[in-house]
Design a protein around this nucleic acid. Sequence first.
DNA 1: AGTATCTCCTGCGTGC
DNA 2: TGCACGCAGGAGATAC
Length: 273
Amino acid sequence: MPELPEVETTRRGIAAHIEGKRIAELSVRERRLRWPIPDKLEARLRNKTINSVERRAKYLLLRIDQGVLIVHLGMSGSLRILEPNTESPLKTHDHVELRLEDGTRLRYHDPRRFGCILWQEGIDADHPLLVDLGPEPLSEEFNAEQLFLRSRQRKVPIKSFIMDNRIVVGVGNIYANEALFFAGINPQRAAGKISRARYVKLVDCIKQVLARAIEVGGTTLRDFTGSDGKPGYFSQSLAVYGRGGQPCTHCKKPLREIRLGQRSTVYCVNCQR
DNA sequence: AGTATCTCCTGCGTGC
DNA sequence: TGCACGCAGGAGATAC
């Protein structure tokens, strides 16, 4: 699934192909995504220029004259650039295509339709979906002191806490599992019962895990065939995710797998306290 | 306000 | 080989 690193890689991959160009036509084959693609979006985008492609959390923001196109890839979405004069038949689940004046096309594919394509009128992306988002995980605003302060009195498990987008964005299930393992923290521990020192370690681990994934994500997407987004490319380097029952890479005891907030959670009973 | 649960959807793995 | 089934998951919506 597109995690933050893949969304960022997608952004970098498409930006140079579409920035500064004028939209010739938007064609929609399937409006029913997570929310319906707005009516009249086709008319709204025609002849408008894409000024920049940015990212906030896992949302891609295409800044266009008079507004912002908000794109989320959900669980199974992908965006592909088709160079001018390239032939590529539409496949099942190719829901949307944006054709630019020079013939470049941007094609949106999303089997599970958990993604969305929305329009926000105006210059700022003060859309309800974006307004309550916490800090970017790789920014200075995401730090141990802030996380520690916000965690006081909170009873939610630490794993749910760091997956809460109001606390910090972009920490998906895989990375939450991994970061907690490297930080040596039991995913079930109440967020409010974790020391400042341990938050220092945790923040460090989250940043490291994500930064490394961005590097890998970059190489992945280059030959990403839109298969299914399984974590195949970095599954080799995963310490706990998807390894329930297998030996801990550190102490060799079998990893425990539980459900936490409807999410598969894997950890080492011995190494994570 | 904080917490837990439900929901959307398709593809894949599993068991018969 | 084919089928039914359960599961996976981001994150908003809903119910306490």
